[in-house]
Amino acid sequence: MEQPEQKIATQTELPKPAALQEPRPSAAAVSDTPGATVFDSKNVSIYYSSFRAVTDVSLSIYENEITAFIGPSGCGKTTVLRTLNRMNDLIPGARVEGDVHYRGESLYATGVSPISVRRRIGMVFQKPNPFPKSIYDNVAYGPRINGIRNKGKLDEIVEKSLRGAALWDEVKNRLNKSGLGLSGGQAQRLCIARTLAVEPDVVLMDEPCSALDPIATGAIEDLMHEIKSRYTIVIVTHNMQQATRVSDRTAFYSVLRDEKSDTRTGVLVEYGRTEQIFNDPQDERTKAYVTGRMG
């Protein structure tokens, strides 16, 4: 009886299956230790004249992540997004209380120029808004207002930005045609190229795919994944599947009704990693919203 046992003892170890051999790279990326803090909002409330649109929002946005803002209509997610690049300044009567820090510097301190803020923090809007100029001039617009006049340099920037927006191959032979002649998906990619041309640090997107068909939406989502490593992206979306497909972190906003004064205001309900928000939301309101039982 000895020998069979010995045979078993000296048998070499089975090779480890390939699936277990190296650590999966995506697993490391999904860890909960974020990179640098890009935005830090503290107790931000936003008023339009005397109406308090958003109350007491505090959250941090991290570098090279895609953060999604979700929530029902009228909950202030676009308003909060616009505080990140001072676009609310354009609305008469808009006022921000609390503070927003961008990489350590306050965005709302006296003396801060909204122009220089917006050069570093770009924005793509819900409805594509290409300028009534040629495609080339649309993309070159940003660099031109930043002082770049050299034609060769501009050509380079235009090509790079259009490639970055996955639009180059479709328009390279008609750069001098009007930007208004593009389809919805192409126009939105043109707007993204235009935003990327000034090489911002952050790209804010306000429901960028809501006016687009599924194929164009897919192209833009691919684009977001591709450029994530070079930019920080914050996206407002009312499409929850998009939030789950695209974002690393999700913030859920909702409307708070004050029964006594019958006023409504937007509040941040829950903020966390996307898998956690959609798998196991902590707040009942978040759960009601993501499972479609709200309202």
Binding site: F278, N279, P281, K287, V290, T291
Partner: peptide, 9 residues
């Protein structure tokens, strides 16, 4: 139904 959260679990 594309369920999420407790429904999916």
């Amino acid at each position: 139904q594309a369920p999420v959260a407790s429904d999916l679990r």
